[in-house]
Design a binder for these strands. Structure first.
Lengths: 273, 273
DNA sequence: TAATCTAACAACGA
DNA sequence: CTCGTTGTTAGATT
């Protein structure tokens, strides 16, 4: 479940190590990961050069030259692993892309994943990415912008945070501690939030994600070089800590159903009313 | 609650009697009925000539020359009444449109109604009408088309019939007898419908609506000339007949809640299972 | 355990 | 009784 921190880390690594390389070969074992027919995908991509790699939310954006975009989403989880010439490949992968220096990368999806190829002038029509909200790591993500994005919204705060159209990059892992740090129950309705709570929430979003980026992501996710992050799950405050004491007040942490997902909360620190 | 029959009758009358007339004056007492500011509406419409009047579903479509469309929806109910020069106007109305021969028409909405003005090339962007389904009175409304519109749908049959995106023109009045004639419970899920039931439903839709058109609509609705229709509510089979005997089996008719609307059914003839 | 899209449905406002 | 918008839920996706 790579979220913004993992995607940020991996896309920066990719940008450093594969920029300017030219695509020479592609193997796509699972056609459903692609947005166009296998044959067309390969024909279009081969010969093109990596201009740069960036990311937005949970999407990795590879800009190709001549201008095309390769958009990668790891879905529920997976690996994107660099390989050098002659090095052994991972045992299992669904997608392999090789450069003309015989380096490359493989992609393994353990559930749903996407690798899309989109023409430069068609990027705005790409439904999965064209509605993405602002990234919490973006300079433009100011408190003012955040507040205005909440106006007129009536949903529950957790649903808001997970909706990529509002903010891009938060998933069901980081949202746990974001909510705990801001002392908000996941089902709090947005119109009931006080000024101060919104400010705490804003700080919690930035703090939580930036801290993980500094630690190069979650300890159970691999980066482009197969290295694991340093943000270990033991550092979670309440996430996945059902039955453990709240780090603040020692009340036992509960796991509750919130819509289709689960949320771990301290029932004392994160009251609904 | 004018539905397809009433709207069909009134739009045909309008087409005969106001075509080729030029708009000279407009009075709009309730700005919320309009899609653009009052002043702009009036300025745009005045001077234009009625080319023809048609309808689709519950919408009256007035084509203006130079090309513009005036789209009227009576919402939950209301009157659209013609007046000749010098004749007394209705006591209450929300909208009045006068032609240069001093004839015209008034509109009265007893709840919400809409009078929209749309440029010819913007008609496809008009949300309230651009997604309307086929009219049951259209030649193209064949059994085959009807069947194919049901494929992959999983909703309850009543919801399907009332959704104007599927079929345009059926409301909560005519749907009552349509369901009774086809012996369908309003909450029957579409995938459970048998071939024969779909065919009966198709016939019931056409029969019910066409019969009412022949009788010039419901007896409690007025046409463009203030005349009432001949489809009296006493001719309803089950609609609004709570506690009365079913015309088929004498079982007492029940009024049940179906989503946000009510449905009158014979619990014997319209079984759910 | 996780992500996204879609259809169906409910609640609300105009 | 209508229609649109927003949000929620369940199901499907490989």
């Amino acid at each position: 479940m790579p979220e913004l921190p993992e995607i940020t880390v991996i896309s920066k690594q990719m940008n450093k190590v594969i920029s300017n390389k030219q695509i020479s070969e592609i193997e796509a074992k699972q056609p459903k990961n692609l947005n166009i027919p296998n044959r067309e995908f390969i024909k279009t991509a081969i010969g093109k050069t990596i201009e740069r790699v960036t990311s937005k939310g949970k999407w990795i954006i590879i800009t190709l030259q001549p201008r095309y975009y390769m958009l990668i989403n790891l879905g529920m989880g997976g690996d994107l692993l660099y390989f050098k010439k002659g090095k052994k490949l991972p045992d299992k992968y669904h997608f392999k892309l090789t450069f003309n220096d015989d380096s490359g990368f493989t992609a393994f999806f353990w559930w749903f994943g996407h690798i899309h190829l989109v023409k430069e002038d068609k990027l705005s029509e790409h439904k999965a990415t064209n509605k993405l909200g602002i990234q919490p790591t973006d300079q433009k993500f100011t408190l003012k912008i955040f507040k205005s994005s909440l106006t007129k919204k009536k949903s529950r705060i957790k649903n808001f945070l997970l909706d990529q159209k509002n903010i891009a990059g938060i998933g069901n892992v980081y949202v746990q501690d974001i909510l705990f740090r801001s002392k908000l129950h996941p089902n709090r309705k947005i119109p009931t939030l006080r000024e101060e709570e919104i400010e705490n929430l804003y700080d919690a979003i930035k703090y939580t994600l930036n801290r993980s980026i500094k630690l190069r992501g979650l300890a159970y996710e691999k980066d482009f070089f197969g290295e694991k992050g340093k943000f270990s799950s033991q550092e979670f405050l309440v996430g996945y800590k059902e039955g453990k004491p709240c780090p603040k007040c020692k009340t036992l942490i509960e796991k509750i159903k919130t819509g289709s997902t689960s949320t771990y909360i301290c029932p004392e620190c994160q009251r609904l009313l």
